[in-house]
Design a protein around this nucleic acid. Structure first.
Lengths: 329, 329
DNA sequence: TTGAAAGCGCTAACAA
DNA sequence: TTGTTAGCGCTTTCAA
């Protein structure tokens, strides 16, 4: 930078201003500086800049699993909102390992991002609260509360009612839920399902699963082993639902003829004609956008109250649900 | 850090050594420092550390499109190899906009990552060569050459022969290729297809597409408009192939009864039982791993010759290809 | 094994 | 509008 300054015959701070596109520089000087930059092949060092400036105008985004297409939607939303405010987005993604997530988080914090957006974080709530003491955190669809933590969530109660009413309305009574792992962070979907079932006078039927296709497959294996089959399955998310469908298909069972299947997320996957999954649309793109906006708002005002944005959901009925076999045929 | 040093009764450099896990510190001192760190809630500032240390032990990974599941595989491979060598991986991902890709790249470079791995980069080759003057670059499946640039590619010629032989062997002669956009970076697949067709005495039939499902859909729209239907379609990748399949299905055409479809990548998508796409397995995970290893090797020896790793491919025959209708029925 | 001193490349008052 | 002067928080010789 000193070289550029000398070559352009100006001071270093002038160069700094030009680099950052400040309007306080005369055109003549600016041109001279730009030319010197070009000639010398100078490149701005963002690390040094961050160190000096403290603010980095960068959002850190943690995506827990790149294999789940819903996170691509969240990412798009975050990037869209961040760019509109002049922020960059830096990503880290974990291959699903919960224990590594805290490490990834640390990594992001340590890079001095101005705020953190977490999508799918299932790690330690206390670790998060500690981070939130000094860096704004927005958690998407994971209810971890604490000072400095904002939340973007969906209305799980309403969603579960939509799903259960839809299935019960078709005549289903044996409706199983392939749940996410037990964790404070996402106990709500499971609880909402149980409530919605109870409200309809139906017995909740929980099968432990996970957040991947594997969980869905494992659930089907459980049904097969016990010989106890539901007429409809509500999976924790689309990916898991697709796992259920795949396993059913491999066993020669047809969806929705033999079993109806519902997912959550309305990902690209659910929209494929050959999948055509009935699912809860959760507006992942909007979730990302809201999260980024909240993060940026809190950067501006770190002391503000924690807020929770609730994203409305919608049931998208496609081809994987219909009346149970005993009634339908 | 000064506070920690004072509290522990040591110098700042001692604290620095402890933080970085150096073995040159006595246990007593180390314990004292660790305790002081704990008590003071000190957190290491990676930005400052990077600035001072120059090396960041971080690989920057550019993923052009998070919606394409193949990039999740590449990412996993990169992370696996990077971690084995004690490197972290920082991601940026673009929503497919070629022009933004150069900006994303700049961003990564500016963050002083030690090397860059690009998956799906379709941007400016010259911009890349300029970056490679000072930062090692490894391009995955995009042939952009230059000093300091290493390549991980697949054998396109062999792949095209596998595909064309498979289809021709089934009796297909009207085999269309839904190609990627024209670009130096990935002209090879298209050229390999043309050669393989010519070698079989078949007429190449190129339909312009893109790297997304949309390109596949558009291709089908073109067939419908002209009324000129191929008996088999070879798409540039799985995502595009699924676009072809979706559009066919929406028009009431069945795969493979009416049209056979082949993709490239062998993504999770291709493996779904309801898709069961015949595709070229390209070992994206291995590509990522090789790329990370090459990047790290070049960090150690920046002057070494540019290398190209060729990843072997394999045809995975699933349910989307069979003999053309006129012969089969 | 430990400490002192000299930056890493930039930004941010402040003064001119 | 431009230049001067201090750092940002850490690492790294080098000497003790």
């Amino acid at each position: 930078m000193a070289d550029v300054a000398e070559r352009a015959g100006v001071s270093r701070s002038l160069v700094s201003l030009v680099v950052r596109g400040s309007p306080l520089v005369s055109d003549a000087r600016r041109a001279a500086v730009l030319e010197a930059i070009e000639e010398l092949g100078y490149r701005h060092n963002a690390i040094a800049s961050r160190l000096a400036a403290k603010s980095t105008r960068t959002l850190g985004l943690l995506l827990s699993d790149l294999h789940n297409p819903v996170f691509a939607d969240v990412h798009d939303g975050v990037v869209e909102a961040a760019r509109a405010e002049g922020f960059e987005v830096l990503l880290v993604a974990g291959p699903g390992d919960v224990r590594r997530e805290s490490a990834l988080l640390e990594r992001l914090v340590t890079l001095q991002v101005d705020a953190l957006v977490l999508a799918g974080y299932a790690g330690d709530g206390d670790a998060l609260r500690r981070i939130a003491e000094h860096t704004p955190v927005v958690a998407v669809n994971r209810r971890i509360d604490g000072p400095g933590i904002d939340l973007v969530v969906t209305d799980e109660t309403a969603s579960a009612v939509l799903v259960v009413d839809h299935l019960a309305g078709l005549g289903h009574r044996r409706i199983a839920h392939v749940a996410s792992p037990r964790s404070d962070a996402f106990q709500y979907r499971r609880a909402a399902y149980e409530q919605a079932m109870a409200a309809r006078g139906l017995d909740p039927w929980i099968v432990e699963g996970d957040l991947t296709a594997h969980g869905g497959r494992a659930a089907v294996a459980t049904f097969a082993r016990t010989g106890d089959w539901p007429s409809a399955v509500v999976a924790h998310n689309d990916v898991s639902a697709v796992g259920v469908m795949s396993a059913l298909q491999e066993r020669g069972l047809a969806v929705p003829r033999d079993v109806s299947v519902v997912g959550y997320d309305d990902t690209d996957l659910a929209r494929l004609p050959s999948i055509a999954l009935t699912t809860i649309e959760q507006h992942a793109h909007d979730q990302g956008r809201s999260a980024a906006r909240m993060a940026i708002a809190r950067i501006a005002d770190p002391e503000r109250q924690s807020r929770t944005v609730v994203i409305p959901t919608r049931l998208v009925v496609r081809a994987t649900t219909r009346e149970p076999a005993s009634i339908g045929t």
